[in-house]
Amino acid sequence: MNIGEIRNVNDRLTGSIATRTIDLPRIGLRKVESMNPKAPVYEVLALNVARRWVQIGALWEAASKKTGEIFLAGNIDDPSLPEPLPVAMFPVEDGGYTIAWRRETVRGDFGGGFGANTRSYDERPQTGGFGDSTAGPAGELVGAGGDVDDEVPFG
């Protein structure tokens, strides 16, 4: 779901983000100058109520596993937000970006699973899940720590 845009105007990357509960009418991207290969590519800045630019996020370069397309991924975060807002930014022809809300691949509410890929965009292993299986090779119950009475009907 697209939630904003960044445009390149006079070599300045500025734009906005808006969702049902978040309205950032003026944001900007500032290039990060670093020799560290793990450093972000951009800092995300926003105007605060005093009209000063403050950092509210960072973006790293990422690549689509399916197409190899290069995009930016990171989080928008601020103490005023209930939780970080994961975003992905995709390049457009004018040198700017379309901003999309990005759901983590692994659904944390359920501990992962349901056929989802268990790696995030940056390939860090995810923790959690439902644990080891209690089914043996023939479908029998193993490792459950007790006897199961198969005679008890479901009711």
Rank of each mutant, 00 (worst) to 15 (best):
A116I: 02
A116C: 04
A116D: 08
N117Q: 08
N117E: 14
N117A: 09
T118G: 05
T118E: 14
T118H: 09
T118L: 03
R119L: 14
R119K: 13
S120D: 11
Y121I: 15
D122S: 11
D122W: 14
E123N: 15
E123T: 13
R124P: 01
P125E: 14
P125Y: 12
Q126E: 15
Q126G: 13
Q126T: 15
T127C: 13
G128C: 10
G128Y: 03
G129C: 04
G129W: 02
G129L: 04
G129A: 03
G129K: 02
F130Q: 15
G131Y: 10
D132I: 11
D132F: 07
D132W: 04
S133N: 10
S133G: 05
S133I: 05
S133A: 13
T134N: 13
T134W: 11
A135V: 08
A135P: 00
A135S: 08
G136V: 06
G136S: 11
G136L: 01
P137K: 07
A138F: 09
A138R: 11
A138H: 05
A138M: 10
G139R: 02
G139N: 08
G139P: 02
G139S: 07
G139W: 00
G139M: 06
E140Q: 14
E140H: 02
L141E: 00
L141Y: 03
L141P: 00
V142W: 07
V142R: 06
V142F: 06
V142H: 04
G143P: 04
G143M: 05
G143R: 01
G143S: 02
A144F: 04
A144W: 05
G145T: 03
G145Q: 07
G145F: 03
G146L: 07
D147Q: 05
D147H: 06
D147M: 01
D147N: 05
D147L: 06
V148M: 04
